[in-house]
Amino acid sequence: MSTHAIMRHIVFGFLFVLMAVAVQPSQARASSPAQTALETSITRILGSIKNPDYVNPATRKPLRQQIEDEVLHIFDFKEFSSRTVGPRWSTFTPAQQQQFSDAFAELLLNTYLSKIDGYNGEQVVYTGEVTSPKGDRTEVRTVITMKDSKKVPVAYRMLPKDGTWFVYDVLIENISLVKNYRTQFQDILNSGSPDQLIAKVKAKAQEVRQGNGQ
Rank of each mutant, 00 (worst) to 15 (best):
D162C: 01
A20N: 14
E129W: 10
T183M: 03
V152A: 03
E207C: 01
E106R: 15
W89F: 08
G121K: 07
Y126K: 05
V17A: 11
D69E: 14
F185C: 00
P25Q: 11
G211N: 10
V85H: 06
F75A: 12
Q210Y: 00
S2H: 12
A20M: 07
A30R: 14
V167S: 02
V208K: 09
S26R: 14
V167T: 10
A105W: 09
S90H: 10
A22Y: 12
A30M: 08
P87S: 05
T142P: 07
N120G: 08
V71A: 13
F75M: 13
P33T: 11
K150P: 00
G135W: 08
L63Y: 06
T91M: 03
L38T: 03
T59P: 02
V140M: 08
K204S: 08
L38G: 15
P87R: 07
V124F: 06
M146P: 00
I67Y: 02
V201T: 13
T36H: 05
L18N: 15
W165Q: 04
V130M: 04
S176F: 07
Y119R: 05
V71F: 11
D169I: 06
L107M: 15
Y156Q: 02
A22T: 13
A105P: 14
Y119N: 01
S90T: 14
G135E: 03
G121N: 06
P57C: 08
T36D: 11
E139P: 00
A199I: 04
V152I: 15
N120F: 02
D169E: 08
I42Q: 10
V23Y: 01
